[in-house]
């Protein structure tokens, strides 16, 4: 038997969590695949299930103080339909999974699953997204990079729930996202790159680069970004070898069923190079 809780409100959900260790089930698109045991066999869960994907408070998307607040149980399809979500982010989401899965899968689930190949993460890292974590005893906020600890490991305590994702409400002059999969649609990412930049008068005024699926967690290097911000396009060409060396050190991919470490590393470097050299074009 599978024991499950189906609370109607967030506070009720937090109350349950305070009393029982639970396996939190949002859309279930990762969890059910991970727990699959075979044809027509029920999955086995160590803890009771806590269903949260129907809770209204966790599905709202709102604009407050020029920040976008996204409920953790907003589905990928709901994000695509929302007028508050930047096109830059929608470009990312449209390349995830398939329409039926996007109708179920939630942004919170994609984050909490903490896969190195999670497709919402490079963008969220690039925008320095914050996550709101609630328990019965209170609310805490963490930058996304501190929330994601390691592959499959997030920063939630047993009694906590990821409730919201907070993003600055901004778009960039230049947005370049590239997801590489084994095929064009319905494919897990073997490497991804998100480059965002603002440029004025031949110089870079703002820039963030994030890479997915090429290290245990998303790769972003503010120090190197700082090196690039303020530079003219011509200077960028000059410091490019230093920049690429830096990324080469921190990109640590693996060989797996989907691709090779060698390709992942080289393609990442090529995408960074291509993006930086293309800024002036």
């Amino acid at each position: 038997m599978v024991n499950a809780f189906h609370p109607e409100t967030l506070s009720k959900a937090l109350e349950i969590l305070a009393e029982n260790p639970c396996t939190i089930m949002a859309g279930g698109t990762d969890l059910m695949a991970q727990k699959a045991r075979g044809f027509a066999i029920r999955p086995v869960f160590e803890h009771p299930l806590l269903f949260i994907n129907h809770i209204d408070e966790l599905k709202q998307i709102s604009l407050e103080d020029n920040e976008i607040h996204i409920g953790a149980c907003a589905t990928l399809s709901e994000l695509l339909e929302s007028q508050l979500i930047a096109d830059t982010f929608k470009d990312v989401i449209r390349q995830m999974a398939s329409p039926p899965i996007r109708n179920l899968a939630t942004i919170g689930g994609n984050i909490c699953n903490a896969s190195p190949a999670a497709d919402t993460l490079p963008y969220l890292y690039a925008l320095d997204a914050q996550v709101e974590i609630q328990s019965q005893t209170g609310l805490r906020t963490l930058p996304i990079r501190e929330f994601i600890k390691a592959p499959k490991t997030n920063g939630l305590q047993n009694n906590e729930l990821l409730t919201h994702i907070v993003l600055p409400n901004k778009e960039f002059d230049i947005n370049f996202y590239r997801k590489l999969g084994q095929r064009r649609g319905m494919s897990l990412t073997k490497a991804s790159f998100h480059g965002l930049a603002n440029v004025t008068n031949g110089s870079v005024t703002d820039l963030c680069l994030a890479l997915g699926s090429v290290a245990p967690t998303i790769v972003r290097c503010e120090l190197t970004e700082q090196l690039l911000i303020g530079q003219s396009f011509i200077n960028i060409e000059e410091i490019l070898p230093t920049v690429l060396n830096k990324y080469s050190e921190i990109i640590k991919p693996i060989d797996d069923a989907r691709s090779t470490a060698k390709y992942r590393k080289e393609v990442s470097i090529r995408l960074i190079k291509n993006f930086l050299l293309g800024l002036g074009k």
Binding site: G181, Q182, R183, R184, G185, M186, D256, A257, R258
Partner: peptide
């Protein structure tokens, strides 16, 4: 076999 499910053994979709 390294590829044992449809997550990592991919066949073409209409987009491919």
């Amino acid at each position: 076999l390294i590829q044992t499910n449809l997550t990592n053994y991919k066949i073409p979709t209409a987009m491919d």
